[in-house]
Simulated assay, not measured.
Amino acid sequence: MDKSAAQFFELIDRLGNLVRVNLRGAGSQHSLQPVHLQALIYLSIANRYSNTPQALTEYLGLTKGTVSQSLMLLHRRGLIERQGDASDKRLVRLALTESGAQLLKAIQLLPEWTQAVTCIAPQRSKIALAVLKELLLALQLGAGNRSFGVCNTCQLNLHEGPRSYRCGLTGEKLSLPDTRMICREHQPRQKPRR
């Protein structure tokens, strides 16, 4: 294995372990597993094209059964709601309830991360974020997975004027908050060739 690739793998594996420990600790206070918190976090950032059980399954990279069981538990606890899609009766849409949103606010997932990031110079932090985003995208696309990127970074996001956006895939108008959410249909913008 390439030394640089091995170092990235080791560091990200260790960071991933810390994330899971953080999720386990935060969830245990509410009798929730990390997958339950990951589902709630996803639904808090997913747009209206991405709030389905299938999209959540793809995003988490888990089995349909695991996601289905997790969603049933979250629904029974009143943390999410399930609604039929108005235009396609086969689809189920998921959304956080007020209780689900309050739980996410209450569990404070990021204090240690916030503290750690403040120890890094802002410019170095920007560079690190850019490198990690580039690595994530390369791994996703290399494996044939969807990128689930933020709408305003998608080549299908059409900026029509001041604060006016439209989805080039669906033709639907997008609000400014819509453009800040992640989307299952995200298509990364092509980088200009150097």
Rank of each mutant, 00 (worst) to 15 (best):
S147T: 01
A138F: 10
E160S: 08
K133M: 12
G142I: 07
G168F: 02
L176Q: 15
L135G: 01
C119F: 13
L104D: 00
L129M: 12
G168Y: 07
L156N: 15
A130M: 09
Q108E: 15
C119K: 14
G144Q: 05
P162Y: 04
A101I: 03
L156M: 15
W113E: 09
G149Y: 07
P162D: 08
C154E: 09
L129Q: 12
G149F: 02
H159Q: 14
S164E: 14
L141F: 08
A143L: 12
I127C: 05
G144K: 10
L129N: 11
H159R: 15
G149Q: 05
G168A: 09
A143R: 13
L141E: 08
L174T: 06
N152W: 02
I120K: 08
L136I: 01
V131Y: 04
L132W: 03
I120S: 10
Q155P: 00
L129K: 12
A143V: 06
C154N: 09
R163A: 13
K105M: 11
A121C: 02
W113M: 01
L156H: 15
E134R: 08
E134N: 05
T170R: 06
Q155E: 00
F148S: 05
I107T: 10
L137G: 02
A128G: 02
P162F: 09
T170P: 10
V131C: 03
R146Y: 09
L174G: 04
L139D: 01
D178V: 04
L110T: 14
L158D: 13
V150L: 06
L139P: 00
D178N: 05
T170I: 07
G142A: 00
Q123S: 11
I127T: 14
A138W: 04
A106Y: 04
L136N: 12
K173M: 08
V117A: 15
T118K: 15
L139E: 00
P162I: 03
L103C: 06
E112P: 05
D178R: 09
F148H: 02
C167N: 03
A101Y: 03
Q155T: 06
V150S: 09
S125M: 14
I127W: 08
A130Y: 11
H159T: 14
V117L: 15
C167F: 04
V150R: 04
E160M: 05
A143Q: 14
R166L: 05
E160T: 07
D178P: 05
R166D: 02
L110D: 15
